[in-house]
Each structure stands twice: as structure tokens, then as C-alpha cells.
Simulated scan of single mutants.
Amino acid sequence: MKHWFLTLMIAFCTISVFILFIIYPQETLEASLNGLNVWGKIIFPSLLPFFILSELLISFGVVRFIGVLFEPIMRPIFNIPGAGSFAWIIGMASGYPSGAKITAKLREEEQLSKIEAERIIAYSNNASPLFIFGAVAVGMFHDAQLGLLIAVCHYMGNMIIGFCMRFYGTKSESPKKITEKNFSLKQAFNQMHLTRIRDTRPFGTVLSDAVIQSIQTLLLIGGFIILFSVLSNLLIVIESTQIIVWTIAGILSALSISTEFSFSIFTGLFELSLGSYLIANEDAGSLLQKLILVSFLLGFNGFSVHAQVASILAKTDISFAPYFFARIMHGIIASILTIFLFSPMYLSKQGAKLETMPVSQEPVFSFFAFTLEKMMIYGTFITITAIGIASILYIQRTYK
């Protein structure tokens, strides 16, 4: 009976959404174009190089090299093998969902156990520096100095989550024999060489596989971004969000935060970028309140990113539950860190600058803001070119 009810609910929701698409075609099209614009100009060109490079590094044994080298650090602190450091670093550098993709890949390569992969996935899916410094600090708050505060709270919160997750699954995990390990470049190089020679594919095949797999993953990500952009917009159009918004308003009121942010928070729970933008441009509330809420959304990721991660993990035996729980905790921890670090990391520096800064001084150059600006100009061209190259490679392989 339970399974029949679930089937009926899924069918009802799917049909309802389809009917909404028909009733509100203009709103559906606008939301789709907004999602496509973000994906094509920023997400695709910024993640593609990292995805291709990570595929190559895994194939050539470099990840195995890093794993052996960092085993003495990662095992005692985070209770994971050294290969997990690669997923963590790539996750911080390129942003979500690259951390999830690398973790799933390492699990498929059997460099991680199921429990170890679930530990890593909980804290390797970060916002990228480009998004924090360029999109959030400069693009939304128009203040490059806020980037450091947001980044420190975000990445420090993830490190705390990582340390806490070292205790996850210890009871069900088979006991490991702990041996004293030191840094060994020779052993690391040997393992890298063995991993490389086991892969008998020619370099051209390895490269084309990396391009095709990376673009397939990014196309999947683009689909989820567009879908959730449409769903969140339709929920707003049909005014079915009042109960959730009132609940969020009650929570904000209990935390002494302006309830005017409740609608922005609801939007951000679905799509992180749009919710953060609405919070930053809200007239109500103080700057600290806005930063607290944005830090929470950055830690939580939003249901759009959650769906992307779930689709990546679906091909493995990695459970989604630890990731979801860790995202909630990361959002809370990052918000608390923002409260404590706002004054020493931002207000104190702003006070000193206001006393010494000339009125005519030009804004501080931001590398991340500059990169984001170039992405907005050339991102679409990069996206179309990359998809075209991948299509040619795929056709050649199919008819070879």
C-alpha cells in the first residue's frame, strides 16, 4: 500500500508540474533562460577545465601519488586515505559539484571505501573562490573586502565538518591496522607509475574520454540548474510558498533577524545564486544579518546542487544522507563563524581604511571579479565550442 501511495504521489506531482508548464509558458521560458544563462556563461566554462584535468590526473596516477604522499596527514585528522585530499582540493578550487564527482570517481576506482567516500563527500563539495570573491562579494555586495570573510567562514566551517565526520561509520567500518607512515616520495612515484601503466589506453583516447565524460557531467548539471530555476519560479508564480515562507519568517524572528529575508531564503534553498542575490539587495536588515544568511546558503548549497550530487552518487553505493546532514550543519557553523569573525575581519579593517583612504581612491582590483567579468563575455563561446568538440569526438568514436 505504501509503495502504491508513493507511485501515485510521484505521478500526481509530475502531472501537476507539466500542467503548470502549459499554463505559464512565458514564466517557464524566462526561468529556463535565466538558468541556461548562468550555466552557459559561468558554470560550464569555469568547471570544464577542472573536470578534464581531474580525469587526466586520475588516469595518469597523479591522484595515487598525492594519496600516498598525504596519507600521514589525512588519516589521523580526517580518518580518510590520502587520495581524499585530491577531492577536497579540487572541491575548494572549482566549486560544487566537482568534489562529489571526484569522490564518486575515486570510489569507482576503489581508492576509497564506501564509508570513507561518505566522509569525504560531506565536506569536499564547497563553493569556489571565483563564486565567493567574484559573484558574491563583488557582484552581489559590491565590496571585494567581504570576500575574505565569507571564504574563511565557509572553508573553516567545512574543515570542522570534516573533522567531525572522521567519527562517522567507525562502528560499522572494518577495523584497520594502523601503521606508522612517513612521507615517501619514492613510494609515491612508484605507485603513480604502477597506476599509469595499468591503464593501457593511448593518450588520445584518455584525453577524448576525459573531455566527453566531463561534458556529459556538465550537461547533467545544466539540466538540474534549469529545472530547479523553473520549479522555484513556478512555485512563486502560483503563490504556493506562503506556508514555507511563514515558517522561515518564524525562525528568523526567533533568531532576531529581519523577517523580510524569508522569501529570499526560500528562493535560496532552491537556487543558491538567486537567493544570495536577493538577500544582498534586500533593503531590510543589517550587513551582518545578510552575511549570516548568505553564509548559511553557501554551506547548505541549495536543492539544485543537492540534486546534482544525488545524480552523481546514484551510480555508486555512496549514501546521500551524510552529505545532506553535513550541508545543514555546515550552513549553521558558517553562520556562527560569521557572527564571531565579522568584527575582527571586516569592521576593524574598514574603520582603519576609512581613516586613511583618500576620497578619490580607485576600487581595489579583484582577480576573481575580473575573471567573472571575462566569463560573462566569453563564457558562451567557450561552452558552445567545447560541446562542439565533444560532439565531434563522440561521433568519430561511434563510427570508427
Score class of each variant (00 low, 15 high):
T217S: 13
I226M: 09
V211N: 04
G61W: 00
N190R: 15
L393C: 08
A386E: 07
S295G: 06
I10N: 12
A137L: 04
N190C: 14
I384M: 10
S348Q: 11
P358L: 05
E116N: 03
K181T: 14
N125H: 08
T241P: 04
P81V: 02
A284T: 13
M74Y: 01
F324G: 07
L278M: 15
A137N: 03
I226W: 02
L278Y: 13
A210E: 07
I212P: 03
M92N: 06
G139E: 02
E362W: 10
G61Q: 01
T28C: 08
M156C: 11
I292T: 05
I120A: 05
F320R: 05
E71C: 04
F261D: 01
K41W: 05
Y394I: 15
G40E: 04
V305G: 00
S360V: 14
F263S: 10
H330I: 05
L288Q: 05
F167P: 08
K176Q: 15
V359W: 04
N301S: 14
G139Y: 00
I336A: 11
Y346C: 01
F370T: 14
A135Q: 07
I19C: 11
A100E: 01
I212Y: 04
F65G: 01
S16G: 11
A11T: 06
K374E: 14
I236P: 09
G134H: 00
I328N: 06
F5N: 09
I215Y: 03
V245S: 05
A249M: 07
K176P: 09
V309M: 03
V309D: 01
I395N: 10
T179Y: 10
I23R: 14
F324T: 09
L354I: 12
N233A: 12
S232Q: 11
S240D: 12
F324L: 11
G299W: 00
Q216G: 10
V62R: 03
Y394A: 15
A83Y: 02
F228N: 02
T338W: 00
L278E: 14
M9W: 11
G162S: 07
Q242G: 12
I178T: 14
C153T: 07
L288K: 14
S54T: 14
W246C: 06
S319P: 06
F368Y: 13
T356W: 04
I377L: 13
Q396M: 13
T259K: 08
L33Y: 07
A326Q: 02
I42F: 00
W39K: 04
L272D: 00
G67F: 01
A310C: 08
T371Y: 05
F296L: 08
H3P: 10
F367A: 15
I23A: 13
Q216M: 07
E110V: 06
Q216C: 10
G84N: 05
F189G: 11
F78T: 02
E362I: 11
Q361L: 13
F303G: 03
T259R: 09
E373H: 09
G285H: 03
K400C: 15
T385W: 11
E71Q: 08
L372F: 09
L231G: 04
Q396D: 12
M375L: 14
S94D: 03
L36K: 02
P322Q: 01
A117K: 00
I66G: 01
N301W: 03
Q26H: 12
I102C: 03
T259P: 09
P76A: 08
N281S: 15
V138C: 06
E109G: 09
H142M: 12
V237C: 07
G40I: 10
M159I: 15
D199P: 06
